[in-house]
Structures are given as C-alpha cells and as structure tokens.
Nucleic acid binder design. Structure first.
Ligand SMILES: [Zn+2]
Ligand SMILES: [Zn+2]
Length: 375
DNA sequence: GGTTCCGGTTTT
DNA sequence: AAAACCGGAACC
C-alpha cells in the first residue's frame, strides 16, 4: 500500500506530541483509547504531506477563481491541500488552483500541471514514471531511483529543476546506490571545514549553489561507503537554503524533504540570498552496525545564516546516538532537538525574518497559526 | 511482543 | 466535506 514514512528531519518530526490535540488525547500515550490513531497535529510531517499532494493532485478538481467575487477576495483558508501546497511547496502540485474552501461562482476548472509526464512507461500510483517498482532495480537515472515508491515523495518539478552545476564525490567511486533513506534521521552539527575531511566513511558531495529561489530538493544518490551490505543505504537530499528575502518573505517554509537529509553549509551569507555560495552536503558516516535508529542528537540543528558565525555543516545523518540514552527517548522517535534555543536562528528575535525551512504548518508563527487538518 | 500513525473506509 | 474509525504497515 505504500505507506509514507516520516522524514525525520522536518520540524513536525522533531516535535514532541503536544498532549492536547484531539489525536494526542486519543492516543494511549496520553491515556486515550486509541481509536482515532492519528499523529499529533504538531508532528505532521512534511514528507507525508508531500506524498499526499502527489497522490491527490491528479484527481483533484482544481478551480481557478474569478478574483472578483467576495469569496475570492477573502483570505485563503490555509489548511486545505491547495493552501498547504502553496505554503510549503510553492503550489507546485496545485498550480493555479484556488483555495479549496472557496466557493466562487465563476470559478473555472483548470488542469493541473503534470509533474510526472507519462514519457515512457506508465506512472505507477505513486507518480513514479520509471516503469518499475523495484527498490533496487538499477538504472542509470538518478531520479528514477530516488523516486521509487516506498517512502518518499519524488522531487517535484524535477523537470524544470536545473541540475546542480557540479557534483564532486570524494572517496571511493562506488556504484551509486539509491535506496530508501532512513525514516529517522539525526541532526548533527559540525564545523564546516571539518566536514570537508570527513571520517573514513564519509563522502562529500559538493554542489554549487544556483541562484534560484524556489525549487526544492535535489537528490543525490551516494554510495554507502561500504563494502555494501545492509548498511544503511543513503540518500542525500540537498536542499536549497530558503532564500529569505528579508522583506518579501512569505509565511511558511519553502522547502521540505523528500528524503532524510543531509545538509548544508550555510556559508557566510550576510544576506540570505546565497547566490554563488556553495552548498555542501555530506553523507553521514554509514555505520558498521545494523541498528541505525536513535534519538536525535541534542545539539541543536540551527542553520547558521549569520555572517559572524563560522559556517556549520548540518548533517542529518545516521550515526550512533549518545551512548546512553534513557528509555524515554527510545520510545518516541524524534523528540527534542530544536529545543535548546540558544542558537536557533529561527527563534532568534534579532533575526525575526528568517524563515525556518523545517517549519511545518502547525508551527506557523504568529496569530495565523495553522493547524493541519487530518491528512 | 510493543508503539506510532498512514491511508482507505464509514459515518456524520 | 469533515470527522471518526480502524486495519495494518513500519518501526522498535
Ligand atoms: Zn498533539
Ligand atoms: Zn518529517
């Protein structure tokens, strides 16, 4: 049935269950009966949302409003699929559609862009157009594999997404293997130059930054740095840093992850358009042992956009967690991590306009906070 | 064995 | 159209 898995890195994934929402109240973990069986509204994952958009868009009856009537003039609802797509995916899946809650008399049915053109082979129900479901089936295309249907949303808009200008792989040129990324990822902070000479098992993928604004994830398959057994297969998703125009910033984030992630040196970008700045993604050290799950590191995952600070490499990686973690943590996957606020630029009042790329709807700032409806 | 919670189905 | 339900996938 192809059930989506959490990305493990978005803010929803990092949040702990709020305990108050209807789904928390329902959940046994808060003493509820467990009949609704939904995740906490603060833990809604962007990848899951993305997957849903991809599933639903093809059958969605998109309408374009007249922009004149009363209904067209009032604010969008912010919670329907169209609004969520607008907010988190730049309307990529629902391009041109008006908020689904609106009732415009003169609305016209429009056709949504096909993000996965038929091309050769019939798309499977996941939008995969590579003609296979084989997780491992080897075929040349980078994306072909990345899109495979298990737990991730293919990078939308790939067809108009320019390729990274340069990708350099250091270390063994092993066959690329692209498989499922871990559902859980870890955030780890490293000094930037250090990341350039990573540990024995690490590869570095450097990608020159393109001066684009929107446009999302770039998938880079990376070998697991290992003689290759069930080592945690690895997929790095390089995410463009949000280009946070200080004035024109729209609410919500622009980027989400289709795969667990690995990112990003945010070099001294004094100002947030980091055109011409390199982005660096370094795959996590793959590890020798089978169990690859752990709580997220406590280090906070702030991306440094600040010129003053040394750049940091934020890597969401599969590494062993702290040697001793208490059980509590073990039981809830991704608790904590964005919590020790000190250097989280997104919470920094002196940087009020920086937009958190991990921000899920339920964390929308300010009065217009959005709570996702059931997915 | 256990838990979380996605996604299809049913009910309102 | 939204909410409620719930089988069962995916993870431990
Ligand atoms: Zn909750
Ligand atoms: Zn997530």
């Amino acid at each position: 049935m192809n059930r989506s898995q959490r990305c493990g890195v978005c803010r929803g994934c990092q949040a702990k269950p709020c305990g108050n929402c209807t789904y928390c109240q329902d959940s046994p973990q808060f003493g509820g009966p467990g009949v609704k069986k939904q995740s906490c509204i603060e833990r809604r994952c962007l990848r899951v949302l993305e997957n849903r958009l991809q599933r639903d868009a093809p059958t969605f009856k998109a309408k374009a409003g007249c922009n004149q009537c009363d209904d067209c003039r009032v604010a969008d609802c912010q919670v329907c699929l169209v609004c969520l797509d607008k907010r988190f995916f730049e309307n990529r899946h629902m391009t041109g559609a008006m908020c689904a809650k609106k009732r415009c008399n003169n609305a016209r049915t429009i056709e949504l862009p096909s993000l996965y053109p038929p091309q050769n082979g019939t798309p499977n129900h996941n939008g995969n157009s590579n003609g296979t479901d084989s997780p491992n089936g080897h075929h040349g295309g980078v994306y072909a594999e990345v899109f495979h249907n298990r737990q991730q949303a293919p990078p939308n808009g790939v067809h108009h997404t320019p390729q990274p200008q340069m990708i350099s792989l250091k270390r063994p040129a092993e066959p690329l293997s692209v498989m499922d990324g871990p559902a859980q990822a870890k955030l780890q902070r490293r000094p930037f130059p250090g990341a350039a000479q990573p540990g024995a098992n690490t590869q570095t993928v450097a990608i020159t930054h393109q001066p684009i604004l929107p446009l999302p994830t770039k998938m880079v398959p990376v070998a697991n740095g290992h003689g290759g057994y069930p080592q945690q297969p690895y997929v790095a998703t390089v995410v463009q840093m949000p280009v946070v125009g200080l004035q024109q910033q729209t609410m919500g984030s622009h980027y989400a992850f289709s795969q667990p992630v690995q990112l990003i040196a945010a070099p001294q970008a004094n100002h947030p358009t980091m055109a011409n700045q390199p982005l660096v993604a370094a795959p996590a050290p793959s590890h020798t042992h089978s169990h690859a799950h752990h709580q997220l590191s406590n280090g906070n995952g702030a991306l440094s956009l600040n010129s003053s600070a040394p750049s940091t490499l934020l890597s969401a990686s599969l590494i062993d967690g702290p040697v001793h973690h208490n059980h509590h943590h073990l039981h809830h996957q991704a608790l904590a991590s964005w919590t020790n606020g000190a250097s989280d630029v997104f919470d920094d009042p002196t940087q009020p306009n920086i937009c958190d790329p991990f921000l899920p709807p339920s964390y929308a700032p300010g009065k217009n906070a959005v709570v996702l409806q059931q997915l």
